[in-house]
Amino acid sequence: MSAPSIPRVHFTELSARERAKALLEAGTFRELLGPFERIESPHLSPQGVVPQSDDGVVVARGTIDGSPAVILAIEAAFQGGGIGEVSGAKIAGALELALGDAEAGTPVRPVLVLETGGIRLQEANLGLLAIAEVHAAIIALRRYVPVVGVIAGPLGCFGGMSIAAGLCSYLIMTREGRLGLNGPAVIEEEAGVAELDSRDNRRVWDIMGGEQRVAVGMADTLTEDDPDSVARAVREAFAAGLPERHRSAKVERYETRLGVIDSSQELDGQKLRSIWAEERR
């Protein structure tokens, strides 16, 4: 039998900075507001949390398929990828600069590498504001150039940043990635363990895992968890150009989808796939 190559390189094993490098053409990575600029969150130290000198977001310029690109990669290992004032401003600011470039006729390809539980609770309101700016910037920018989101895992993408994911032109996931407005632990705490046991991995991934999200059209591409496959999926998304209509603009489609679901019945991933099969895409 064929053993995997040893050791296998996984995209999910990479740090945010390594992920950004992996998505850009070799040798083109250039970081903006890198850790040596020491743009840290001022809110964490007073609350006994050690800040990080990039505030957990990497902004990287470089090229994808020869075209200028900007990668916004969130570091899951710092505060669960939570968005605060500074990290949120780095993302929103970069997207706004990209918008300026696009309006000037020199579009830059934006990629969001989303690995986040949403708002960073220590700076909740400022994080919320920043995320709202991110949402507005994505909507403005996607008129000119596709905005591509990557949810590789293993943390996933939740909270306000899951809305940002929903606004993306294209969403790329691995089977270990998860996407949901509320994370499983939050659902269990709010609605009770009978609604969702957050430790029941099979059920959690059946609802919000990459395979299911792609199968029901909430995400576009399921990719292998290695740097080459993810980078290829990103290139292909840009090559596809702007979608005819963005997912988040198809309001009536999602209203129809909600309408056909009988919420008194227990649903599982397979059932949802078959119920929604007819009007997918």
């Binding site: 895992g153 089977r175 270990e176 029941d200 991995n201 099979r202 991934w205 895992g209 990459g210 395979e211």
Partner: peptide, 9 residues
């Protein structure tokens, strides 16, 4: 065939 609790996909 890992038990469900160890599956993250």
């Amino acid at each position: 065939n890992p038990p469900d609790r160890f599956r993250t996909w």
